[in-house]
Simulated scan of single mutants.
Amino acid sequence: MKEIKAIIRPAKLRDIAEELHAIDGMPGVTVSEIKGFGKGKAKNAKDKILYEMVDFIPRVKLEVVVDDEMVDEVVNVIQKYAHTGNTGDGKIFISTIDDVVKIRTNERGKDAI
């Protein structure tokens, strides 16, 4: 199992969510509103937020845990629909998940996602 985290532009969320929803067997996605900065430190960003003298840019974080076989398909969808070609398009992080426990049923592993 892999966890895929993607930091994307808020304006791209709808398209990405629609395409992820269309993937057969997609277990679900968690979405969080976040803010941060990259190498450019948000100095010239049009949508920046000033918080205690530090510039941040609003972004959305998607998180999903999938079987190894689904990773490429999910990453490709995010890459395709998040891409604008401009600085600040975001990042995709892929991590290995050792185990998952479904709280309601106590299922573990693949059955829990």
Rank of each mutant, 00 (worst) to 15 (best):
M1H: 14
K2A: 00
K2E: 03
I4R: 14
I4A: 12
K5E: 12
A6S: 09
I7K: 09
I7R: 09
I7P: 04
I8Q: 01
R9W: 02
R9V: 03
A11Y: 00
A11I: 10
K12Y: 01
K12N: 05
L13E: 01
R14S: 08
R14K: 14
D15T: 13
D15S: 12
E18K: 15
E18C: 09
E19Y: 10
H21V: 02
A22E: 09
D24Y: 13
D24A: 14
G25N: 08
G25Y: 12
G25P: 02
M26G: 04
P27D: 12
P27M: 04
G28E: 11
V29R: 03
V31M: 05
E33A: 04
G36E: 03
F37I: 07
F37P: 07
G38A: 10
G40W: 06
K43H: 13
K43T: 11
N44R: 15
A45H: 13
A45L: 12
D47M: 11
K48Y: 10
I49S: 08
L50D: 13
Y51W: 06
E52A: 15
M53K: 09
M53P: 00
M53I: 02
F56E: 11
I57D: 02
P58R: 06
P58G: 03
V60F: 08
V60G: 00
V60A: 00
K61R: 13
L62I: 09
E63T: 10
E63Y: 03
V64R: 06
V65G: 05
V65N: 08
V66N: 10
V71P: 02
V71E: 06
D72A: 10
D72P: 04
D72I: 05
D72Y: 04
D72C: 01
E73K: 15
E73I: 11
V74T: 11
N76P: 03
V77Q: 03
K80H: 04
A82E: 00
H83W: 11
H83L: 11
N86W: 04
N86S: 08
T87P: 10
T87F: 09
T87E: 14
T87C: 04
T87K: 09
T87I: 13
I92H: 09
I94C: 06
I94L: 05
S95L: 03
T96F: 01
T96I: 06
D98Y: 12
V101F: 03
K102R: 15
K102M: 10
I103K: 10
R104M: 06
R104F: 03
R104A: 07
N106P: 00
E107S: 02
E107D: 12
R108L: 04
G109Y: 14
K110P: 00
D111W: 09
A112D: 07
I113T: 12
I113Y: 12
